[in-house]
Each structure stands twice: as C-alpha cells, then as structure tokens.
Simulated assay, not measured.
Amino acid sequence: MLITAAGLLVAAPVLAACGTESTEQAEAGRAFTVESTDDACTVSGDEAPAGTLTFEVSNQGSDVTEFYLLGQDGLRILGEVENIGADSSNTLTVNAPAGEYFASCKPGMKGEGIRSAFTVTASEEGEEQLSASDQELVDEALAGYKLYVRDQSAQLLEKTREFVELYKAGDQDDAARALYPVARTHWERIETVAESFGDLDPKMDLREADLEPGQEWTGWHKLEKDLWPADAVKYRALTPQERATFADDLLANTETLDEKIQDLDYTIDQLANGSRGLLEEVAVGKVTGEEEFWSHTDLWDFQANVDGARVAFDGVQPIVEKNDPELAETLTTRFDELQTLLDAQREGDGFKLYTDLTPEEVKGLSNAVDALAEPLGRLTAAVV
C-alpha cells in the first residue's frame, strides 16, 4: 500500500454504532448506503458536507465483512463496523470534519480492503466540531488509535502467516524475501505498543548484534539472515526442520501479540510518548542502516515508524492546536518535510535498498529526523 504522510484533524468523538438515519441527515446529503460483495465496495455517494455521517452497510457477499472510514493516509480509522455476516447489515455513524477520506470494505475481514475516495466538504455545521471539549478530543484520539493498532496487528498476523508458509516451503525464498519488508511494515507501525508486552519484543525483533551471552536468538531477524546471508560461503543455512521451528515460533508470538492487543486501552500520554518513541526507533536503528543488516530493507521500516508516529500525532493534533498551536504547525511541517525525503527514495511499490543511498541522502534523512525529534519531544507536555 502506498502511504502518504498527510493527516486529518478529527475533532469530535468517533462512534461506530447501529442506528436509524434521520430525515435531516438524508436531506443534508450525509446518509449513504454501502453494498459490500466479495470483490466490490459500492458506496451510494463519494462526497458529503462536514458533520455526522451515516453509512448503512449491506453485505451481499459470501463471507463476513467490515466497513471503515479511513483518513487520507489510509491508516487512521475514524470509524468501523465489524462482523457483518452474509445477507446482514449494520450502520456506521461517524462525525467527520472537512477533508479527504477512504471508504473501505474488507471482505473476509482480511487485508487492506477495497477502497474508494470519499470527500467531506466544509460546512458551517461541521465547523462547530472544533469547539468540542478537551475530554471529547481525548476520547476521540484514544478510540481512533485503538482501532488503528488492532487493524495493524491483524494485518501483521495475516502477512506473517503468508511469510511463514513461504519460508517453510524451502523453494519459495524469492517470494519470502519480497514479502519480508511488507509484513514487517505492520510490526514497525505499532512497535512501541509491542514493546510494552515484556519479552515478546526481543523474541520477535531482536538483532543478532544485541544478543546477550547465552541468549537464544529467535524472530524476524534470524529468518532475515537465513534468507540474505552476508557470506553465503561461510554461513550454515538452517535445515528445513530448523526453518519450521523458528518460523512457527515467530507466528506463535505474533498470535500472542494480536490476542493481547485486542482489549488494550491507552492513555493520552501514551499516544504522545508513542509518537516520540517511534521516531526514536528511526534515529537509533533505521537511519543508521543497522536494523535490517542483511536485507537492507531499512527504508520500509523507516517509513512504517514514521507512519505510526504520524498517526499518533494526528490523533492528538486537535488537542495540541488548542494548547500550543505553534507546536502543532511545526510538527505538521517537519513531518511533511521528512515524508518528502522518503518519497524521493521510492521504487515501485517499495523503496531503494539502504545500501543504494548516497551519503548525502542518508545525511538529509538524518537531519530531517533530528529536526522533527526536538519538537516531538515537547508533544506529551502539550496534551497532558
């Protein structure tokens, strides 16, 4: 998925609920029908004025489905309805300010979904959302971030299952190499959340250089080394049995992570600190090229950490704009500047290998990270 850095201001609580559309909403052009099938997501319109929107979702497919209203970055979730069985329906009600969005159905509740652009235009009524109370802004930020983390965890689990099957096959290494950075994108976006679960993070993401004496090495980077041995002559490749053991262990830990995330709640300071923490991950491992030592797919991780940091910031941005508007503007500008540099390194659906960057390009990324880190360090104080 092509990710942009643009974020959205959502300044009213996000609500996903069943309900009956009102005559006033219909007359105002804020009520829509959605028909979800196995291969399509048909919305009755693609534009609405800002305010309370309703989407009556009907599942005409053969499998259970979900419906989302996503921010312009394709990551932030403003609202969702889940577990809509075949021949069933449900209604999403969400309060949306002006901006660009995506309407998305997810047949089978897997993958990134079937998306279409949806525009919310400015309206006098919609502007009243900006006067929402601090508590409403906090509630909206926490609800949106919880949905985001759950969605990324589900996609991580799905992609990890695919990767494990390819890796264990033994004759699908090229496909496994191609999927490796894609699957890890979902891990890197929520890395600071995963780190909160004790030893799950080292079991899944420890680098060989960080091993302590006698510590068993497991997780993504062990499989990475086996797929991209630095010295194929001296390296002893894992046996098929070893491949299966370490791959199954990675999948089991990913399943455990997904289970733990489902009912996890967050505080507003955790969102702000999480944004800063993800950027620190960039500064410590990604911008140095140390994270993906064998595959050199560090820019995928770099982008994913920035994605996660930006989503967390976007969630609290309405609060920052009320408390410290200058900081909000600075952070928006610095995120955009860093994203511009990252976009310059794209190749096809991914990125250049980190080893293909010039010293000047690496320095430019490093400077942009440093420029963002300083104001991001003041984010927590602006929201608590």
Rank of each mutant, 00 (worst) to 15 (best):
L9S: 11
E281L: 10
P325A: 11
H296K: 14
G71K: 01
T355F: 00
A368I: 03
Y101W: 08
I190C: 00
L238G: 06
D370K: 13
G51M: 07
T192R: 12
R76L: 13
G308D: 00
F246D: 11
T42K: 15
P375G: 08
V10N: 14
Q270A: 11
V120I: 13
L264I: 00
Q317A: 14
L357R: 07
V311P: 03
Y180T: 06
L179W: 00
Y180G: 01
T42E: 12
I319D: 03
K260P: 00
G364W: 02
D269G: 08
P375V: 01
E216M: 10
Y167D: 06
M204N: 10
Q155T: 07
L379S: 02
A141R: 05
T297K: 03
L327V: 10
L338K: 06
L166N: 10
K234H: 09
P13S: 07
A40D: 14
T192Q: 11
P375T: 02
E191Q: 05
L15V: 15
I261M: 12
A48R: 01
E56S: 12
L341K: 15
A312E: 08
K203T: 07
Q317Y: 05
A368R: 05
L365F: 03
E162M: 08
G277M: 03
R161T: 13
K203M: 11
E195V: 07
L278R: 07
R76K: 14
E188W: 02
H296E: 14
E100C: 07
E56Q: 13
F313N: 09
F351V: 00
D205C: 01
A232C: 05
P318W: 08
E291T: 02
T4C: 01
K159P: 03
E337R: 09
D39I: 06
L342S: 04
Q129Y: 15
L279T: 10
N367C: 00
L206H: 05
T185D: 05
E361L: 08
L8K: 10
V43T: 05
L342Y: 06
V138Y: 00
D307E: 11
V320C: 06
Y266R: 11
R30A: 01
A244G: 08
V120K: 09
S116P: 08
D356W: 04
